[in-house]
Design a protein around this nucleic acid. Structure first.
Lengths: 273, 273
DNA sequence: CAGCGTCGTTGTGCTGGCTCAACCTCTGGA
DNA sequence: TCCAGAGGTTGAGCCAGCACAACGACGCTG
């Protein structure tokens, strides 16, 4: 069980420049946990004692308001570090981390953070970059929430998710983790009812296909148009990139994907292959 | 002109652990600019060539949609590093930086970033922390936009601003930089009309007092109640902290503030004193 | 001091999407 | 085989806040 772990760990962005000895060292210091869907890695408000790396699966970072509204801030993909209050100077977690489907998570005590940053080449830089990407995603969310209609925001959320962990399946691109209507509502600041209505409409129009806890985008292009992103937003927007990848994947690439059917679509995730 | 600069630079969080020789070194490599209100430091989409430090004044990070809507993502205070695509692995700026009032900005070429991070004690750590605080602020914004009514969001925005750069004045706390109704609308995802109505109402009720481009909060406590934050949100929320500071500042502290009447309210800003 | 541009106020009508409500359809457990 | 509970669909009514509109006030420039 150790051998595959080492290989997997060495493929993760923060650790990809390390040698076998270092990886073994890191793994020996880590604590490993399996989680099933809905389980929490940590809760908002808890003291920050460890930092975490997602080995497989998907994690939602969630906040809950006093009124009980749940908001999904971000999705974490395999290979990403999360819960790093250690680096951010935060005493308590500012969001909860909840497994979306089955996950495997490694974690280390806070005290190791400075050592990791200084001793392991590329760790600090990669973490900073990942963080930049998250800040970007959040700023996109703010822009969407401030200016777009519900329908557009839902389109953006779907595009973002297929960009981050979409899987090619017969007839479209499937979101790579279980997701309910309520979840989509929690991402877009709307209600489960409205999401349901919109998805029903889109299904009628052949843009998506969805069953319980599963969404398949059958016409990503139309979704991009509806998202309002096609009208001049910066072209290096992750959403647009996702779209480009989804639409214009070469035959070779899609063949390769058939070979390992669970491989993810996005550039980040494909590093984990 | 160099001497005060060195002292000022040495008081900024990212550089506060450095000695005189290092500060001189850093200053010699820097480019300095004065900006008047409305001037831009950099524009969204431009290639990232330099990173920046705000010496005095306030900067808005702004994004503009294809439809022409402006969204204010964040306010940068004196002592903060910004425009750090160098660290985040971004080729172009993902937002524009616009001066809110008069500003002084130092900047350095990207190529110096790795050297700063490794050579200057505390620089990387402080930058990471500042970034964590910004991520936090953005996540708060997302929660607000997703769940709160316009009136509550405006209250939150005002509280955030007095927390970050409020100044004690006769009869209340004044926001430390010029701000229009339209600006507040750009922060809260609403329209100038709605902001105007809400502020008029609050002025009638004695919660705020405002003139052209200036807002004074006369009853922060009532504003906190209206913001909806008092109902159980995490107590270490920056908004609540700001409120606590604003409301329960000791007589000693407020005396000290009278002495240097332009000193800012927040913990971060007060480091710059 | 006239003219103009920026900023602010206030009134009116309309609508996107939320709330409330009822019902359907899976899935897993006993 | 039946039941409970989670997830999903759809209808009806209502209202917060947006769009449109018109006007007032301040401050700069020539």
């Amino acid at each position: 069980m150790i051998r595959p772990d080492i290989n997997q760990l060495g493929a993760m962005p923060p650790f990809c420049r390390l040698d076998l000895r270092q990886l073994r060292e890191i793994l020996a210091l880590s604590d490993s946990r399996h989680l099933t869907g809905g389980a929490t890695v940590f809760d908002e408000g808890q003291p920050v004692r460890r930092f975490h790396l997602l080995m497989s699966g998907n994690i939602r970072l969630v906040r809950v308001t006093a009124e009980g509204d749940q908001i999904i801030l971000l999705h974490i993909q395999a290979g990403q570090v999360f819960g790093i209050g250690a680096a951010l100077g935060q005493e308590t977690y500012h969001a909860s981390a909840i497994a979306a489907g089955d996950c495997r998570v490694l974690s280390w005590p806070n005290a190791l953070w400075p050592g990791f940053s200084s001793a392991y080449d590329g760790f600090a830089v990669e973490t900073f970059r990942a963080f930049g990407a998250r800040a970007d995603e959040m700023s996109n969310r703010i822009v969407e929430l401030s200016t777009q209609l519900v329908e557009q925001r839902i389109a953006c959320a779907l595009l973002r998710m297929i960009g981050q962990s979409g899987r090619k399946v017969a007839g479209g691109i499937e979101i790579g983790f279980p997701i309910t209507r309520q979840n989509i509502a929690d991402m877009t600041g709307t209600t489960l009812h409205t999401v349901s209505r919109v998805l029903s409409l889109w299904e009628r129009d052949g843009v998506v296909k969805s069953t319980r806890c599963l969404v398949i985008v059958t016409d990503p292009h139309r979704l991009v148009v509806m998202s309002g992103a096609g009208l001049g937003t910066d072209a290096d927007d992750p959403i647009i990139q996702a779209k480009a990848q989804a639409l214009y994947a070469t035959a070779a690439a899609s063949a390769a994907r058939k070979a390992s059917s669970s491989s993810a679509y996005s550039a980040q995730a494909s590093i984990t292959v």
